[in-house]
Computed example of a mutant assay.
Amino acid sequence: MTTTLTFPRVVIVTGASQGIGHAIARTFLDHGDIVIGCAFSSADNAPHAMKLQAQFPEQFFYYSVDITKTDAIANFIREVETRLGRLDVLVSNAGKNVFKGIDCEPEDWHHNLDLNLRSHWYIAKCCRALLEKSKGVILIMTSNHAFSTMPGCAPYNITKRALLSLVQSLTIEWGPAIRTVGIAPGFIDTAGNQLWFDAHEDGEASREETIRKHPVGRIGTSEEVGELCLYLASQAAGFIAGTTIVMDGGRSALMQD
């Protein structure tokens, strides 16, 4: 499938205030694209996003959006359409590690579903008309937890598994006008993953033990995720659709630890 993307493209990146989302936004900006970033944090509480805005005043625009709320998503996309009139790429990245275990409380279960599953479906739905006009691309950030997980990581892993099916359904029902691909990162060196390491008795030892379980001898970087997004959104990746690409440094290749 070929696309008709023009440059600079207009790109939405959710969860753009920090971590992987921030790196993805920066990668597209460095490529010359226009990026609309959003996250739950207000501008006053999103210093990394504000640095991007200062560095790319004509290319980067930041919005505070609670993507667990469907009306907030709909209003955000209407604002994007009013402001820029087009959309070429949606990087649906926002999410959080809801690691409460399978015996979690109902409120944890519903929050996880709203944040880590429904938001991806609904923002894609709101962006559909704009993306059809540009023959655009949807990239959905899932996780290697979609394929195998660890004790205590439910209900997060359940929604991440469901996103594999969302990628497939978007591809077969909205193609060929819109191409959809999933990305499943493993351990990426972010503040969120560091919190997980630090939750252990010896955070540094936990980090080193995790690194040893990766055949490449390290954990990944947010910038590497950004570069993969840039490639998958390009015409060079036009025959990649309906699948989820795992980038986990070979971690999932191990049968046992």
Rank of each mutant, 00 (worst) to 15 (best):
L5V: 04
F7M: 10
V11A: 06
Q18P: 06
G21S: 05
R26V: 04
G32Y: 14
I34N: 14
M50R: 11
K51P: 11
S64W: 00
D66H: 11
T68H: 11
T70M: 13
A72G: 02
A72E: 13
A74I: 12
N75E: 14
R83M: 11
D88I: 14
D88G: 10
G95M: 00
K96T: 04
N97V: 00
V98G: 07
I102E: 15
C104D: 01
E107D: 15
D108F: 13
W109A: 06
D114M: 11
D114F: 02
L115N: 13
L117D: 10
L117K: 13
I123M: 09
K133Q: 13
V137W: 06
L139K: 01
L139G: 03
T142I: 01
T142E: 02
S148P: 02
T149L: 05
C153W: 10
Y156D: 06
S165V: 09
I172D: 08
E173K: 09
E173C: 03
G175D: 11
R179P: 03
R179W: 09
T180F: 02
V181F: 04
V181N: 00
V181R: 02
A184G: 10
A184Y: 12
P185G: 09
G186I: 08
T190P: 01
L195D: 04
W196E: 14
D198G: 01
H200A: 14
E201N: 05
E204T: 07
A205V: 02
E209C: 01
E209F: 05
T210V: 05
T210D: 00
K213E: 01
V216S: 02
G217Y: 00
G217K: 05
R218K: 12
G226A: 03
E227M: 08
L228R: 05
C229H: 05
C229K: 02
A237Q: 08
A237F: 04
F239W: 07
F239R: 11
I240E: 04
G242V: 04
G242F: 07
G242H: 02
T243A: 01
I245S: 00
I245H: 05
D248I: 06
D248E: 08
S252I: 13
M255H: 12
Q256H: 15
Q256W: 14
